[in-house]
Every structure is written in structure tokens, then in C-alpha cells.
Amino acid sequence: MEKFETHTGVGVPLRRSNVDTDQIIPAEYLKRVTRTGFEDGLFAAWRKDESFVLNNPSYAAGSVLVAGPDFGTGSSREHAVWALMNYGFRVVISSRFADIFRGNSGKQGLLTAIVRQDDVELIWKYLENHPGAEITVDLVSRTVHAGEIVAPFEIDDYTRWRLLEGLDDIGLTLRHEDAVSKFEETRPTHKPVTTLA
């Protein structure tokens, strides 16, 4: 995973709450067996509508998505994160994220910044008044900078540390393989196995 310290890029105002993962990438696009090439499926239904924000050339090169509350609800598909990242997004800003989506993002290096809804509204207005404006998301100081606006954001310490260091979770866990083996010795014998004797 790439290290993430700060990112500056075009902000995209998405005035929608409850953006579920079926909207981020519909099921018909989930059939690939790779982690790349999902950008075509990103917001596939909405992109057919000319007035959709990403169809505005000013926002088309966006890399910071600013969305309404409850972003990423629904299916656990990590394809939603891949689609956003394949398209070019590095950050999603929302006042509330669905748990699985937030977890998936952290594994892939997509920053989910939790910003208060009042501040989201201010950033939306700024981006709508300045189409194509760049905003900066600084993970070190946990702040979003959009024009004159400086908004703090929340992210849990552990995910922040992993993003800053660009660390792979599996590698971290394998450092404790002994503890896993030891735990396995204590498991009750009545627990099932998937293979029948």
C-alpha cells in the first residue's frame, strides 16, 4: 500500500445521502476477477444522467469526493473502493461512513475523512461556487483545506498510522503467528470443521 500523508486534488460535491455500494458500483460490474478496471462501473447509473456532477468537465478529474451522510452503506463489495480508486479518487469526505466500506477503504489506502455535516455543507458551497477548485486533505494534521475553509476531520489513530506508514495488515498480523498457533491449541474440540471425516 502507498503511503498517504497529504493529498491535493479537485473536489467533487456529491449532494446525496445514503450513497450505497450498489450506486457506487452496480452488481453487473462485479464480475471481474482483478482489482483494476472498475472505473467504468463507478456511479454507472448516475453517470448516464447529463446533470450528474462527474459529467461536468470541471469536476471530471476529481480526486476528493465530498458526499452526504451514510456513505458506502449496503453490500460489503470492496469493488466500491477499487472503482473509486481506479477512477482517481484518493479521499472521500462524509459526516458518516458505513463500517464495512470504511474498513475496506483503510485496507486499500483510500482515505475516509469524517467531517461534520456543517463543514460538509460549507465545502459543498465552496466547490459549487468554484467548480474545479482543488482542496487539500492533510492526514498529518487531520484537516481539510478548501479555499478559506479549514475543517478538522476524524479518523481512528490506528488506520491513520497504517496509512501514514503504508503498512500491509497481513504482514503485521503474521508477526504474531505464534500467538495464533497458541490460541488454536486452546480451541474446544467440538468446534466444527468444513471437511467431514
Binding site: 460489503s76 463489495r77 470492496e78 469493488h79 473502493v81 464495512i100 474498513g103 475496506n104 485496507k107 486499500q108 481512528d156 490506528y158 495488515d169 497481513i170 503485521l172 498480523t173 503474521l174 503467528e177 495464533v180 488454536e184
Partner: peptide, 20 residues
């Protein structure tokens, strides 16, 4: 509970998950 594909890989490799 449901997990993402990175976590699927994590469980396949380690039979564990780091969770808050």
C-alpha cells in the same frame, strides 16, 4: 459479520482479523 476482499485475504492467510 461481512468483510471486504482485503479482509477475506487476511482471514485466508491468518485465520484471524484485527478488529476494533
Amino acid at each position: 459479520f461481512g468483510i471486504g476482499t482485503s479482509e477475506v485475504e487476511h482471514v485466508l492467510a491468518t485465520q484471524t482479523l484485527p478488529l476494533k
